[in-house]
Amino acid sequence: MRKHTNFGIGVGLRVPHLSHILERKPVVDWFEIISENYMTGGGRPLAVLDRILEQYRVIQHGVSLYFGSSGPLNRTHLRDLKQLIKRTRTPWVTDHLCWGSIDGRYTHDLLPMPYTMEAARHTARKIRQAQDFLEVPVAVENVSSYAAFHISRMSEWEFLNEVVEQADCGILLDVNNVYVSSRNHDFDPRLYINAIEPQRVMQIHLAGHSRFEKYILDSHDHPVIEPVWQLYQLAIERCGPTPTLLEWDDRIPSFEEVHTEALKAARYMPESAMVRQ
C-alpha cells in the first residue's frame, strides 16, 4: 500500500463554494468530492467537476458502498464508481466502515457495525472485492456512533484493525469521529489512536460536532474543537505526514473560513509534508 505523504491539506468540495472556487481559483492542495453526487451520468454536476479537475487534484469519498451490510456489493454502484474514478483519476477512494442497506433497501445513513469476527470477515471480503474491481486502493473510515450491540465481542479499534488487515486496505482515520464515539461510549480516544496500525492510515478527516444533553452528534457544522486537534496531533505523531481534510457540511460558512480552519492542520504537519505552491 503506497502512502501519499506530501498531499497536504484538502477541503470538501461543496455546492455553496463552487462559484467562488471556479471564479477565484484559490490555492488548495486538493478537494474531496462525495462520489455519489457525481455518479449521475451527465449534466451540470459532471460539467462542474470537469472544470474543477482542470485545476485541482480530487480525491473521491463515498457514502453508500456499505461494506458492512450483510448483503453483497451493489454491482451497478461499483460500475458507476469505476467510471467516475476514470474521470477523476483519484489515487485512492474511501468509504465508511459501516452498514446502511438491507435486503435492497437503503437507509442512507452510516450505521455502526456489530463488532464480531463474522462481521469482520464478511466486511473484509467485500472490501477486497471492491478493491479488485476498482483497481485503486480503498481506505475505510471509522464512523461516529450512538449505539452499541449486545453481540459485539471486541472494541471498535480491534474491529477496524481486524477488517483492514484481512482486506489489506487503508484507513481513513476520522479523528472527530473517534472523539464523538469516545464520548458516546465512554472510552479513551487516545487508546483508539494508539491502537490502530499507523502504516495503514492513508488519510485523515477533521470536523466539528454538536453537543447535546445526553450525547454528541457528528454534525460537521462547527470548527474543530481543541481536544480533536490534540487527537490529530497524536495521530500525525504516530502516522507521520498524512493527507488531511476538513469536512464542513451544514451551516457552511464562506470558503475562506472553511479553508482557514483546514489549514490549521499545518501546525501539526512537518514542513516537508506540505505541498509547495
Binding site: Y146, A147, A148, F149, H150, N184, K214, Y215
Partner: peptide
C-alpha cells in the same frame, strides 16, 4: 433492548431513536 445496549444516559430505545 435485545439488540442494542443502553448506556448510563440513554436507553436502547433512545439510542435507536437517534438513528
Amino acid at each position: 433492548a435485545a439488540i442494542i445496549k443502553p448506556n448510563s444516559l440513554l436507553s436502547a430505545r433512545e439510542r435507536l431513536e437517534i438513528y
